[in-house]
């Protein structure tokens, strides 16, 4: 993905990640609670978390909100069939649109699947997502004439599972 060397966690990093993957203890001193659970000195928990964060292994320590509960009931996966030569330019442009949470280039799976660019749109209503995607399509057509051959929005109609990742570190 990027040129940086991979981070190789040691045993204790792995223990720390395992201990936090279900979540941080919700106590006034969560890192101390974690240290207690692990039987470590709190300083080690702080030092290792800081190192994992600096290495990019931890992106952030934060809440994963439930989009639905916050009223963002409409979540549309917009998918675009874009000229390969211009997909990066267009991907960067789409990622800057305010309603987009994720934007990725992915391989096509022809003939079933022609789309190579995915951008997730969130809004409170399906019609808002549709409007935002339609507006993006119009601006894309003006800005990159002929580069976008087709697009579609796939709405999610149900969450079947949402646990976050549970990994065997």
């Amino acid at each position: 993905m990027n040129g940086e060397a991979l981070f190789v966690p040691d045993e204790r990093d792995r223990a720390l990640m395992l201990a936090t993957q279900a979540g941080l203890p919700l106590e006034a001193r969560p890192y101390h609670a974690l240290a207690e659970r692990l039987g470590w000195a709190p300083e080690e928990v702080f030092a290792r978390l800081a190192r994992l964060r600096a290495a990019g292994v931890i992106r952030r320590i934060a809440a994963a909100p439930n989009h639905y509960a916050l009223g963002y009931v409409a979540n549309g996966m917009s998918v675009w069939d874009v000229e390969d030569e211009r997909v990066d330019e267009i991907g960067r442009w789409l990622a800057e649109q305010g309603e987009v949470s994720h934007c990725y280039r992915r391989p096509r799976a022809l003939p079933l699947w022609r789309y190579n660019l995915f951008a997730m749109f969130h809004a409170r209503e399906r019609s808002e997502v549709e409007r935002a995607v339609a507006a993006a399509a119009v601006r894309l057509a003006a800005r990159f004439p002929g580069a976008v051959r087709a697009h579609e929005v796939l709405f999610s109609s149900r969450i079947l599972k949402k646990t976050g990742v549970r990994l065997d570190f």
């Binding site: 981070f7 993957q21 320590i61 439930n66 976050g164």
Partner: peptide
């Protein structure tokens, strides 16, 4: 309302 509170791991980095 919140599904999880904790570190977000970037497993690709490992």
């Amino acid at each position: 309302i919140v599904t999880r509170f904790g570190p977000f791991f970037q497993v690709e980095r490992m």
